[in-house]
Design a protein around this nucleic acid. Structure first.
Lengths: 345, 345
DNA sequence: TTGAAAGCGCTAACAT
DNA sequence: ATGTTAGCGCTTTCAA
């Protein structure tokens, strides 16, 4: 590999001249002739700056890491897209790690940031994540952004309009004529779960509908959790006619469990979920969802991290430039007994 | 951040002693007392070796990159899992990039490897990828492994048992009694598409069944491609009663197109796909698939890349320790007219 | 067994 | 406008 020195020698100038030209800072005053010479030499040698040397010298790697609990989660995939695009366009490369990879969370972060492998970290907490991570992150002072989180801590956070999305989903069911609507939520300690629950309650209250506590589950966002939630709801003496699923993965579990239990969707039970995924129109039946601006959240997270790395104060951002949108498919319909009447009023 | 020098000073020894202890090479002979002193100092200062300095000195980053055409593809997600686990357990961090990120493929790779950001690259070619990439990769001499590829080129490759999987899928349909079986394949220049086609033909020939060329499409692996393929097959005077989809994403498109066209699955048309994804049991109807060892392929790819980085010759690996397995769900059934008879012989 | 010292390739302050 | 030079933090001869 050619080095700066090689280029300098070939061009017949000093290394600092080459460095100045290549990092073309506006303050660097170089004659056109020299610049020309250098560019020619760079071309001829196929010179590429050495990443490690540069990183060592500048104490900056221009790399960031994103830590997610689950690489196969389609919701995170949407997020990743935005993160990736925004990161690369700002000159960052993206390092990816699954949580519990190799070592517990705080060690991982300490290693990544402490060894100077990355300039900052994007962190999507999982249900299983030990919450002390956040404390140790705060303590470490490393530039980091918590994704899908909105909490008053001295780390940056970005979150979606969860409450609004849940209210929209709930309202859609109310508009269809449902009065018995359940909420299949996330873990109670998860702050998105809290906000989505709040949105559900807001919409229900506004419509004057009851929300008995046994109609709200707090099990989690996975397909398995969704299955468990349906089980629990169906063990109740009275069943809801519709469900708001706080997460699309849970909704998919719900769908599978309903199929196995012989519950017809949407005839007997309507389901609407928060988060849209690309295969939502191929589930059985195609799932009605509220699409969230995940790509945009990825972009916002990188922007925030970039600022933080540059020395900015931690901020708490809500991604609201693009509103949630209801995508009506075939998993929602008027409640049993009212269909015909409503369809042909 | 504490440096080696800080540790040395605190321990009252030289930096070289510290370096030797921390990189604990077997040849390094250090007294127990010194070692003890050093460890204590490391502990006290919370020392972490600087990544850039080490990389500069050793001309090794212990990072690898994986380039995929599409971050949201669930098939690649399965692969990523294996790659990630295997990489971290060997001490590599994983850098991820979507193809066309920022710049065309060869530049990207040149930058990643040429600047010494990573020690090697894992590359999943996409349908849209310019094939000159491979040439320029070969020419560059950078350690790289082509995933899902089996070609006689001086770069390592790893591939699955595509032919076998396609034959299994086809045989499943034959066993159900189908005689008119179509193949919805990938692009002809894609070598997995060729192998899957071959498997289909093998099974069909062995059963003495006809494979008219118009019953084999070569459009591509995406859901859209799947929709287009169904369209084309249904424009034919005679329809197949079953389809082997060379890729699960295409199969999902097929499912959607069938639903929209009012074709009942599996009653009128059976569909089986290659590659299983986690939501395959929630599609409408749940999709019969042939599951491939994607995780294992990721592990194999990292192993091969690691060897290559260590100076080994490029090898061409087939991932066959774990055979493909047929996962029968509800998208396949005996052909129309034969169901009752076969179910109750 | 331990230490001194020479760089790895680059940037930036300083000198010319 | 251009060149010289001192490190960034680490590994690794070489000497003691």
């Amino acid at each position: 590999m050619a080095t700066l020195g090689d280029v300098a020698k070939l061009a017949g100038v000093s290394v600092s001249a080459v460095s100045r030209v290549l990092s073309n800072s506006p303050t660097a005053r170089v004659s056109d002739r020299t610049r020309e010479l250098i560019h020619r030499a760079v071309e001829e040698l196929g010179y590429q700056p050495n990443f490690a040397a540069r990183a060592l010298r500048r104490a900056r790697t221009n790399a960031i890491a994103i830590l997610v609990p689950d690489l196969t989660n389609a919701v995170f995939a949407g997020l990743m897209l935005g993160v990736n695009d925004a990161a690369w366009s700002r000159g960052y490369t993206v390092l990816i790690a699954r949580e519990e990879t190799l070592e517990p969370h705080p060690e991982l972060i300490r290693r990544l940031v402490g060894e100077g492998r990355v300039d900052g970290v994007l962190l999507q907490l999982g249900d299983a994540t030990d919450m002390t991570v956040v404390d140790s992150l705060v303590e470490s002072g490393a530039p980091a952004i918590l994704i899908n989180t909105m909490r008053d801590i001295p780390i940056g956070t970005v979150a979606l309009e969860d409450e609004r999305a849940a209210a929209m989903a709930t309202q859609h069911l109310i508009d269809l004529g449902h009065r018995h609507i359940a909420m299949v939520g996330g873990l109670a300690r998860n702050d998105t779960a809290q906000r989505r629950s709040a949105g559900y309650h807001t919409a229900m209250n506004a419509a004057g509908l009851a929300t008995p506590p046994e109609w709200e589950t707090w099990i989690g966002y996975t397909p398995d959790n969704g299955r468990a939630a349906l089980q629990r709801l169906w063990d109740l003496p009275e069943h809801p006619t519709a469900i708001v699923a706080a997460n699309v993965n849970g909704a998919i579990g719900l769908l599978g469990a309903a199929r196995r239990a012989g519950i017809r969707i949407p005839d007997e039970l309507s389901i609407v979920s928060i988060h849209d995924v690309w295969f939502a129109d191929s589930t059985g039946p195609p799932l009605t969802t509220v699409r969230m601006p995940l790509y945009q959240m990825g972009v916002t997270a990188i922007t925030a991290l970039h600022e933080r790395i540059g020395g900015g104060e931690p901020r708490h951002e809500r991604v609201d430039a693009e509103p949630p949108v209801l995508v009506v498919r075939e998993s929602t319909a008027p409640p049993p007994g009212t269909r015909r009447a409503r369809r042909h009023p």
